[in-house]
Design a protein around this nucleic acid. Sequence first.
DNA 1: ACTACGTCCTGCTTGC
DNA 2: TGCAAGCAGGACGTAG
Length: 278
Amino acid sequence: MPELPEVEVVRRGLAAHLPGSTAVEIAVLNSRSVRRQLGGAESFVADLRGRRFESPRRRGKFLWVPLAGADAMVAHLGMSGQFRLAEAGSERPKHCRVVIGLDTGSELRFVDQRMFGGLWISHGNSDIPPELGHIAPDVLDPGLELAALAHRIRTRRSAIKRVLLDQTVVSGIGNIYADEALWRAKLHGERPADQLSQRAVVRLLEAVQGVMGEALEQGGTSFDELYVNVNGESGYFSRALAVYGREGQPCERCGTAIRRVAFTNRSSHFCPACQRRR
DNA sequence: ACTACGTCCTGCTTGC
DNA sequence: TGCAAGCAGGACGTAG
C-alpha cells in the first residue's frame, strides 16, 4: 500500500518522537512479522532490547531506524503495515503484530493486517542496511541523476510501467503513483521502455517527482484506515488522484472515461485518449 | 543479466 | 441472507 510519500510521512512521524528513546520491552505477537530476522522472534527481541533509537531513515519504501552504536531496525510496511506511537497500556489496535515498549512511557506498535510487511534487525554500521543493497535510489533522493536513470530505463524491453515498479531500477514507486505519473506524462504504461525517447522518460520521471512531492504535502494517500500516520491520522492526497480508482469517471484533461485494465495481478488506470499505445 | 510469474496474508466488496 | 469469488497500495524466489 504505502508508496514513497506514505512511508516518508511515517518516517517524519517517527523522527519527531522516537530518537533518543530506548526499547525496554519487546513483544512479538505474530512471528511472521519478523520472518526476515534470522533466529526468529527471540533473536529480534534480544537484538533490540536495551537499544537506543536514532533518527529514522528511508530508501524507497524501506524504512530503518539506526540503533546507537551499530545495527538498525529495518521495516517494510508491505501492503498494510503501520507504525503507531501511543501511550503504553492504552488499547491496542486490531492486527497489532509487534509492540516495542519505550523508556519514555510510550509504545511503538507495528500494525499490519495483511502481514506482507515486516521488521528485522540489521547488523553493522554501514550507511544503508546491507539487505537493502539491491534497492535503487528513489526519485526524491537528492543525488539522483535523472538523465542517467532515464538512460538505464531505456535499456529495458519491458513495459514502462513494469520498469517503474522495479525497485532495483528506481525505488519508491508503486501502483498508484505509477499510474498517476504515466497519466501526467501522457504515456501508456504498456509501451516498451526501450522504445521511448530520452525526453519522454525524463518527463515521466519528473512527473513521478511532481506527483510524489504533492502527495507528501498532503500527508500521503489514504483510502481508509489501513494507511495512517504514527498518530493515526489519514492523508488527503486521494482527493487529488487523476486516474487511480477513477474507472469510468471523466479524464480531467479531455473528459474521456478513465479505463481500468488487468496488469500483473492488479490494475492499471489510464485515459485511453491522452495515453495512446501507438 | 533480464524477464515474467506465482506466492505469501487478511478482510472487505461484489455478484450470484 | 449466504456464500464464494474478486480485489487491495508489495517484494521476493524461482524458472526460463
